[in-house]
Computed example of a mutant assay.
Amino acid sequence: MSTVPEAERTQPFPTFKDARTHLTSQQARRLGGIRWGSAFFGWVTAMGMVGLLSALVTAGAAALGLVSPTPDPVAAAPAMGVAGAAVLLVIIFVGFYSGGYVAGRMARFAGARQGVAVWLWTLFLAVIGAVIATVTGVVSGPQLDELVRLPMSGGLMSGGVLSAGAAALAVGVLVVTLVGAVLGGLGGMRYHRKVDRDLVVPG
Rank of each mutant, 00 (worst) to 15 (best):
L178D: 08
T177Y: 01
A168R: 15
P142W: 04
M157N: 13
L147H: 05
A170M: 15
V127T: 12
Q143H: 05
E146R: 02
A126L: 11
F124L: 12
G160D: 11
G172D: 04
W119R: 06
G137V: 03
S158G: 04
V138I: 03
A166G: 12
A167T: 14
I128C: 04
G129A: 01
S158N: 05
V171E: 06
L120H: 06
S153F: 00
T122D: 15
A167R: 15
V118Q: 10
L150Q: 15
A126H: 08
L120D: 10
L178K: 09
T122K: 14
G172M: 05
L178H: 03
L123N: 15
M152A: 10
V127G: 00
V161Y: 15
V139N: 06
V116E: 13
G154F: 00
D145M: 03
G155I: 02
G165C: 06
A164T: 06
S140I: 06
L178A: 04
L123S: 14
T122L: 12
V171N: 01
V148Y: 10
G160H: 13
V135N: 08
L162T: 10
A117M: 11
L144W: 05
V171D: 03
G160S: 09
G159H: 09
L144E: 13
G180W: 09
A164N: 11
V175P: 01
V116P: 03
E146P: 00
L147S: 03
G155F: 01
L150M: 05
G141R: 00
Q114H: 12
A130Q: 08
L125W: 02
V179I: 11
G129W: 01
L169M: 14
V176Q: 13
G172F: 02
S153L: 09
G137Q: 03
S140C: 01
G137I: 03
D145I: 04
L156C: 04
V138A: 07
V171W: 14
G160Q: 12
A166C: 07
L150W: 08
G154Y: 00
L144H: 13
V118A: 10
G115P: 05
A117Q: 08
V171R: 01
T136K: 00
G165L: 14
G137K: 02
L162S: 13
G129H: 02
S163H: 06
A117D: 13
V135L: 11
V182G: 07
G115F: 10
V139T: 09
A130G: 11
V138T: 10
S153K: 10
A133E: 00
G165Y: 15
G154R: 01
G154T: 00
A117H: 09
L120F: 09
G159T: 09
G159I: 06
V135C: 05
